[in-house]
Design a protein around this nucleic acid. Structure first.
Lengths: 348, 348
DNA sequence: GCTTAGCACTCGGCCCCTAAGAGTGCTAAA
DNA sequence: TTTAGCACTCTTAGGGGCCGAGTGCTAAGC
């Protein structure tokens, strides 16, 4: 009759009504409810016939005989592709987002954390914001501060105003003057260099440093490497996990526990969102579309943020597949583009 | 018969058995179960009489007629004061803790985050670690890095090796050389001064700075003030919130949601733990002993950490009142003292 | 040929009842 | 003072019956 991926107008209208109603009510939707509340212009018997066809095509299913229908992942997918992609935020919400990003935020950490809070409150889901990647940044300043004999602190400031610090162990024979000297040389060497290549640059130029400083400088290089390796898992801002527990969004408590657990562990979270993040555009993963075992009952919506030329980071939300996609998708999109704009304007 | 706060041996033994059994089973405990599983040396009828007395004294209660007894908050309180204060960690667990703190961790953030993870896994509760207070620290180094016209980054390193950074807006007329000059003067002014008084010191000496730098220096002072005000809420490490969702630790889902929500919001969390933290020793707050509304079904165990002379921070766990106090209390204590020792050794 | 009214059928949810079981409090005897 | 015995209470589990929502099918209507 129709190809598996397209539906005639009436079936589409019915599917849309089913998803809308199920999302807001949480109850399986019957044919009578549909004709009563949505202007379908046909009788319930016709709707039943169409629903039967929709079930054959895999868009909806019956939890049990004589219950209404519930969307399958494929049903949600059709809904999202057809009616949610181009949805717009309600004017009030859009204003809220614009206001939020209207006031400039100079503290990156705060800004990201607050963005996650905003996103979670807009979507009533758990929200995740990944900090901007560092590939873009260059070294603006290197400082070595002696703390005690044998201990020093490495501080690196990027041109975008991000500050990294890492404790160092150095030989006890190294004094303040030598440290300062080393810092001077490092500044000359890697000023303006990309942050992620700084360690390599130092390592390859180690011969240019005076013998007595080489060990300390090598420590700096490895500290930088380590700093970058860890950065990924540390710079994740998660807010609104309690939304996952809300009411009966998920069927059983065990699922809730697993999802919350997954969100809590940054590594796991990265894995869960990894491939969605890899896509360089807004991505919606519904239930079984997620690779991760624990996310089979979740919808994960992610979007990259950055300037028009380049993506610098990503953010997203995690919620039940039974989610208000027409509200959530534009919210994620809007927050991502506003965050990108703000950070770009700040030169980050 | 007995004063309200003391129990004869047999009543005490029975109360202890009730708490122990209820904590592990989650079911109200009856007289028969008690004589079967605990060597009380008396019949169930006697136990019933004693239980009736314990109920009159407010240590236990019946959820409904013909159900077993469940400890009240007062019952848990008696249990904790009498048998849990001096409990020791199982040897294996103690070893695990010692191993964990055996390897020195130079990154404070990592160390605290990992400590929270350790504590939550040891206790199967949500664990919170507050970062060390800053009162103790003194200024080791001040740096002003120019980022772009009108923008600079303030970096302050404490003697303990903590690094603070705050973005600044400065007049566009200020150039790199002037910034460096300002940093030099600031270094001379507040080197070795307590961190929390640095802002005040700068403000009171503002007249000594050249006119063209005063505005920038004033910005530094207010940035420092701001940094301190925010620090409290930012430096909280929470791990294991998913433990709260576990099984049937809490009666209803709504409680779980509220508790998770409370843990998520740092301000709320601070309030919830504030008075417990104010006590300068291990503190156990059971149910109604907590001021916070949402914590009426929770037990909050906190302990300060630091050196023998001074407390520098605190940590704790949040779980259901139905908690294994004899395991949790020593775990909190042990982790706190090990963390304190480690940080002290690192000179923090 | 599509739509629809009508109808039989299915099945989960709910109420009610009962029986079982756990646990109590009381009493009277040891 | 302790304990055996017993009546009593109240929860929980299970079964039966009813209700209603919802379906699929069929036959009539447009």
């Amino acid at each position: 009759m129709t190809t598996p991926n397209s539906l005639d107008d009436r079936k589409a209208a019915i599917l849309r009504a089913i998803v809308s109603h199920y999302v807001s009510s949480g109850q399986p939707v019957g044919s009578k409810t549909l004709v009563d509340r949505y202007r379908l212009g046909v009788s319930s018997a016709t709707v039943r016939n169409e629903m039967s066809a929709l079930e054959d095509q895999g868009f909806i299913y019956q939890p049990h005989t004589s219950a209404g229908r519930v969307p399958t992942d494929a049903g949600y997918r059709y809904f999202v592709d057809t009616w949610a992609r181009d949805a717009r935020l309600p004017a009030g919400t859009a204003l809220q987002v614009r206001r939020f990003f209207g006031e400039p935020r100079w503290e990156l950490e705060d800004a990201l954390r607050n963005t996650a809070e905003l996103l979670s409150s807009l979507t009533e889901s758990a929200a995740v914001v990944f900090a901007p990647a560092l590939e873009q940044s260059t070294v603006r300043h290197v400082e070595l501060v002696s703390l005690a004999p044998g201990r020093a602190m490495l501080v690196v400031v990027s041109d975008a105003g991000r500050v990294f610090n890492h404790p160092l162990r150095v030989a006890e024979t190294i004094d303040d003057v030598q440290l300062e000297h080393a810092a001077d040389m490092l500044n000359r060497l890697i000023l303006g260099h990309p942050l992620d290549k700084a360690a390599a640059t130092i390592a390859s130029s180690i011969d240019h440093f005076p013998l007595e400083l080489r060990e300390a400088v090598a420590t700096v290089a490895s500290a930088l490497t380590e700093e970058f390796a860890q950065r990924d898992t540390e710079r994740v801002f998660l807010e609104g996990a309690s939304n996952i527990v809300d009411e009966h969004k998920f069927a059983d408590l065990e699922t809730v526990r697993q999802v919350i657990g997954a969100l809590e562990h940054r590594r796991l979270l990265l894995e869960v969102l990894a491939d969605a993040v890899a896509e360089q555009s807004l991505s919606v993963r519904i239930g079984s579309e997620n690779d991760a075992e624990v996310m089979q009952n979740c919808a994960v919506i992610t979007a990259p943020y950055g300037s028009e030329e380049s993506v610098i980071g990503s953010l997203g939300v995690v919620g039940p597949t039974r989610m208000d996609y027409r509200r959530t998708i534009p919210a994620v999109y809007e927050v991502a583009s506003n965050l990108g704009r703000m950070l770009t304007e700040l030169g980050l």
